[in-house]
Design a protein around this nucleic acid. Structure first.
Lengths: 168, 168
DNA sequence: GCACGTATTGAGACTTGGTCGCAATAGTAT
DNA sequence: ATACTATTGCGACCAAGTCTCAATACGTGC
């Protein structure tokens, strides 16, 4: 389990900010780190309950925000069709990536691009923004959805697809 | 009125796709082209009613989607605090820009960056996406919100701020 | 270890943003 | 002008997330 460091970071965050360490918070932490791709609050709640854990919907929502504030999770609406709900994702310290989202089927590919990162910084500076941790997302069409003849078009969003990250 | 061309384009789109040209559609077109920055459906509806126009909420929502489909408006959730609602913006053909959004106060700055545009295309190609009209947004912190001492922090989102677009 | 004060939880009501169903209305082709 | 059917308006509905408030449980001080 590589997330031991992260759990310590979470505990430190809680204590440092005067929050209590509750069973629910720890369970939520465990769950989000057990999950692979992006997951929404409702699914997270369902997953926890199906494991027999007793935790309420409201608590999941509340603590998810706390997890985000601690820097251990990210919260985003990923364009496409699936942007009704916020999606959460655990963050291994500093290891941030950006998202490429199919505007039609909602497929999400993660990528890291030093080139874009550098330009982001420049753009921020040029417009009076402070270059801190950005979030960048590109919405476009995946090949499947762009192909006209194909059964193409709107498919089921399949979150969590990882793109090897050809360092463009 | 520079949007005459656009209106023709809209009419052509409607006719070409078997849609009817209704008073409501034209009024909505006029309204969104009269507006400057980003505006949400609810505000648009209110603006129209306050001008004495009779149009229903549902019709605004329905036709806004049509306007987007015609390519004459864009629909996005702009990160920050204001991403509860979709924001719409009229598009002068091809003149697309990207957004820099303050994650704290929701301030939006528009920018155009050929460099980023080129990288977007590369990244799309590298990951099996078709480089069509992307949408790219960078969420960060504006100077005001990043300044610690200041009255800083969460301010009222002020949509529609235009950034001169230093071609980075 | 125990008691006490307060943050947190759970349950459900509520809010908000957006969609749907259906009868009435109004484009458009003939 | 007529008829055919898309569109409108209305209110009901739905989904995601937040709020309220009594009950619970952290964790500090003893």
């Amino acid at each position: 389990m590589a997330e031991i460091r992260e759990k310590e970071q979470f505990l430190a965050y809680l204590r440092g900010s005067g929050h209590r360490v509750t069973a629910e918070r720890l369970a939520l932490f465990d769950e989000i780190f057990a999950q692979h791709g992006h997951i929404d609050a409702e699914e997270l709640h369902a997953a926890m309950r199906s494991q027999g854990l007793k935790i309420s919907r409201a608590t999941v929502y509340r603590n998810l925000d706390l997890l985000v504030a601690s820097g251990l999770a990210s919260k985003q609406r990923l364009g496409g069709l699936s942007d009704r709900r916020f999606l959460y994702e655990h963050v291994h310290r500093g290891q941030r990536h950006d998202h490429l989202i199919c505007a039609s089927c909602g497929r999400v590919v993660e990528f890291v691009s030093p080139g874009i990162a550098a330009l982001q910084t420049e753009i921020c500076r040029a417009h009076g923004f402070v270059p801190t941790h950005h979030t960048l997302e590109i919405r476009s069409l995946c090949n499947a959805c762009a192909a006209p003849g194909e059964s193409g078009g709107t498919q089921q969003p399949s979150a969590g697809v990882r793109g090897g990250g050809a360092g463009v």
